[in-house]
Design a protein around this nucleic acid. Structure first.
Length: 800
RNA sequence: GCGGGUGUGGCGGAAUUGGCAGACGCGCCAGACUUAGGAUCUGGUGAGCAAUCGUGCAGGUUCAAGUCCUGUCACCCGCACCA
């Protein structure tokens, strides 16, 4: 059979579509399998060569599950809201909805050309009003439960996108999307209380089958720490509340530091003799971007508050208070006790300001550097704590603080609430109105979706207002509560909103009375296997787990966690090993590859390229090896005439079924393919293969190269689809050889090889080994100290 | 600084978990078929003339180490003045 891939591929794509071969069934009595890939953002550039890697991987899993008899849901959709589309629309004066439609059309063609077994009947778009109706509905439920609130605060603002960013979207002081610098801006923003779920987001990870590095990264981002809050009385009369993870070092606190933004500073204005210097420092700190505040500034700066002192509750010592930007307003209480002897930052500050350094944990040399070990060391200069180990001292001091009512045990998280509003056009409108009398009032649920109005100009403004604020007809409205004058919220939601629940919509995508029927959610959820990129671990993955937990609390979902298993793929790099980008000129277009080699070759190559979890450079030469393999496979149909079993291949075929079946489960696609390549080499050596055997081979290859597998399967006289044929099973007894070649070593060095029967008796094998001429020669006249026999593996004779 | 990870031929990568290092593919070399070869097929291919030596480096455990232990170096990813 000649391998005419383009003809073969379009032939089978048409048939799959005509037969609706891959649509999930709504028969909830069947065993189900929900396989999920991250839906793409339909950008103007079209599909990236990186997309087919995770998509093929999950397609392989889905196709195998289908052949194993599961009712498989393998959906696809469009994460369609977002800035690039809006920016393109601004530049070319085309409505973002039209741009999206064009891009979706292009993406659909590209994905279909690759033969993925998606259920296209369930595809969704987050920008579709019928979809975002439910995004808005979820937001309203969050609002009603007090988990959405508006707050004036310093937020991250991207100078290029002209939009606020969530904490998770700031990477090293720069915008996650465009890389421009992020500055601080005080704005009133809608926030989601993800922090309320912080502990559960950690705890519920435990039973999940996520890659360890994914769990570690989430836990790290949430950043739980245990310590204590301690009240310090001040000479101003107010109490200064601080958070510390080292309450055991309380006797070593020689000064206090407050964040420049700390509200008590204003309250103390009249008591401070140097308020001008304080004000100057605060203004300077406020102007710094996060980047400047963290990365660039190594030296500690600050101003002492002249006129107010704190009193250490444990020994009554009066200690000075400073403001410094090394203390963050947004973490803990925005103020700390400084223990320079046992904290590197406090140590640096104490050195810069010539403050006393009091050692309270023995073990280091605090005249040189801070001693920060929390594992070893006994308490000193610490009154009633003296002589205790650090861990015991921690317990004792917290007990003491609680007894005296000046402090308590406290858990803190690094996770911040989610800044949820965006001042851009192409997103879901926030469904709230502000009434002069009633305050914030939700748009009634039966009025959802609150659709985006058409506008002339989507251009964002420098003052950080949404383009929607310019549309009077949108903004002005009546209060649903009192009927009075009201104004709509004009901010839209971030692009992470729609993707926080899209996997639920797939379960029942056309439902117009609920985000999905309970029955459908109960059947399909949780997702059995979700593969996606590492870059989403502290973004989409965290956000969607949060929303799922909320919906679980609301009774919408019956599972606490949305995903049972989460894996991650590596990137496909350019030929030069660098990340693919237009500016580097190393971009590979998948359309070109499909045209030149066919979809099956591209799929196979992307699975063969290397360890699935690791990045790998594209190789235009290596892909030809995959093409060659498929051509050889196509040629097998001419060889397969007889039926039955080829003795020379029988054992190998059973081993192959086992290998491919098991490797797919572990995402070791590269070794599964290597095994199939080896099998073709064996067929060549045997010179023959039967129709039955080739039928098995077709089914094994089908998840990887489905078009060619179908074509060869058809030449075997099969009229049903290979894609829906049962997955082959292996006979374990046939994977075991009857004889095996073992190694004979002398003192651990290989000296000879020997054929033995599998499971042969130890003594008999050793006798045989000694009888091998080379071995006999080398052990002659020597004493055998030890005889080691590893069954079916080796004999090792230790001689002297 | 904290957390996660990776170091194996010219290249991508294998190695049933302590048992023949380098599967499979690329590339390269030689040959065949060809008017032609950037097509296809066949054979070879870690280094070294050899004994031997070889999995970042240095030790250790073991009959036996890519795999286990101790130390160390390099690189990659995430977080980062989080008290």
């Amino acid at each position: 059979m000649k391998y005419d891939y383009s003809k073969i591929e379009s032939k089978w794509q048409k048939r799959w579509e005509a037969e609706k071969a891959f649509e999930a069934k709504t028969d909830y009595s069947l065993p189900k399998y929900y396989a999920l890939v991250e839906f793409p953002y339909p950008s103007g550039q079209g599909l990236h060569i990186g997309h087919p890697r995770p998509y093929t991987a999950m397609d392989v899993i889905s196709r195998k599950r289908r052949m194993q008899g599961y009712n498989v849901l393998f959906p696809i959709g469009w994460d369609a809201f977002g800035l690039p589309t809006e920016n393109y629309a601004i530049k070319h004066h085309i409505h973002p909805a039209i741009v999206t439609e064009q891009n979706v059309k292009h993406f659909t063609e590209q994905l279909k050309s690759l033969g993925f077994s998606f259920d296209w009947s369930r595809s969704i778009s987050t920008a579709d009003p019928e979809y975002y109706r439910w995004t808005q509905w979820i937001f309203l439920q969050l609002y009603k439960k007090g988990l959405a609130y508006k707050k004036e605060m310093a937020v991250n603002f991207c100078t290029s996108c002209k939009v606020v960013l969530a904490n998770e979207e700031v990477i090293g002081g720069h915008c996650e999307r465009c890389g421009a610098e992020v500055v601080r801006k005080v704005k009133s923003q809608w926030m989601l209380k993800i922090t309320e779920y912080a502990q559960r987001l950690i705890d519920d990870l435990a039973p999940l089958d996520f890659l360890p590095r994914i769990k570690a990264q989430e836990i790290n981002w949430i950043g739980r720490s245990e310590g204590a809050e301690v009240k310090f009385a001040t000479t101003a009369g107010d109490t200064l509340l601080i958070y510390t993870t080292r309450p055991d070092t309380l006797f070593g606190a020689t000064y206090m530091v407050m964040a420049p933004e700390h509200p008590l500073i204003d309250a103390w204005k009249d008591k401070l003799n140097n308020f001008d210097a304080v004000r100057t420092y605060r203004e300077k700190a406020a102007k710094k971007s996060d980047f400047e505040r963290t990365e660039l500034i190594k030296e500690k700066t600050g101003v002492r508050l002249d006129g107010v002192e704190a009193i250490n509750p444990v020994n009554g010592a009066r200690i000075p208070i400073f403001i410094s930007d090394y203390v963050l307003a947004s973490y803990g209480t925005g103020a700390i006790m400084a223990v320079p002897a046992h904290d590197t930052r406090d140590f640096e500050f104490a050195r810069a300001f010539d403050l006393p350094i009091v050692e309270v944990v023995a073990g280091g040399d605090v005249s040189k550097e801070a001693y920060t070990d929390t594992e070893t060391g006994k308490m000193v200069h610490s009154g009633f704590l003296d002589g205790l180990e650090v861990a015991d001292a921690k317990r004792a001091i917290v007990e003491w603080l609680e007894e005296k009512g000046v402090g308590e045990k406290k858990v803190n998280f690094k996770l911040r609430d989610w800044v949820f509003s965006r001042q851009r056009y192409w997103g879901e409108p926030v469904p709230l109105v502000h009434c002069e009398k009633c305050g914030w009032v939700p748009v009634p649920e039966d009025e959802l979706p609150l659709t985006l109005p058409d506008v002339e100009d989507y251009e964002p403004t420098d003052d950080g207002e949404s383009p929607l604020s310019k549309i009077e007809s949108f903004v002005n409205c009546t209060c649903p509560n009192c009927g009075g004058k009201a104004r709509r919220e004009t901010d839209t939601m971030p692009n992470w909103a729609g993707s926080s629940w899209y996997f639920l919509r797939y379960c029942d995508p056309h439902n117009d009375t609920a985000l999905a029927a309970k029955e459908a959610l109960d059947y399909w959820m949780p997702v059995d296997w979700y593969n996606g990129g590492m870059e989403h671990v502290t973004l989409h993955l965290l956000y969607s787990r949060f929303w799922s937990k909320f919906l679980y609390d609301e009774g919408v979902l019956s599972c606490k966690e949305p995903y049972l298993k989460r894996t991650a793929h590596g990137m496909i790099l350019g030929e030069n090993g660098e990340k693919m980008s237009k500016s580097r000129g190393n971009v590979i277009n998948p359309d070109d590859i499909v045209r030149e080699y066919g979809a099956d070759t591209l799929r196979l190559y992307e699975m063969f390229i290397g360890d699935f979890e690791k990045s790998a450079p594209w190789s235009p030469a290596a892909i030809r090896g995959c093409k060659r393999f498929l051509e050889r496979f196509a040629g097998l149909s001419e060889l397969a005439k007889a039926s039955g079993v080829t003795p020379a291949l029988e054992s190998s075929l059973h081993k192959l079924i086992k290998k491919v079946s098991e490797d797919i489960e572990q995402m070791k696609f590269n070794t599964a393919i290597a095994a199939m390549m080896s099998f073709v080499n064996e067929i060549d050596a045997a010179g023959t293969i039967t129709r039955d055997e080739l039928g098995v081979f077709c089914r094994l290859l089908c998840p990887f190269a489905p078009h060619l597998a179908e074509e060869v399967w058809e030449t075997l006289g099969q009229s049903e689809l290979c894609s829906l044929a049962p997955w082959p099973t292996w006979d374990e007894s046939k994977t075991v050889d009857t004889s095996v070649e073992i190694v004979v070593q002398i003192c651990g060095k290989v000296r000879a090889k020997l054929d033995i029967a599998v499971g042969e008796d130890k003594d008999a094998v050793i006798e045989k080994a000694k009888a091998v001429p080379v071995i006999a020669e080398q052990i002659a006249g020597k004493t055998i100290l030890k005889e080691i026999y590893v069954p079916d593996k080796l004999v090792n004779l230790v001689v002297k």
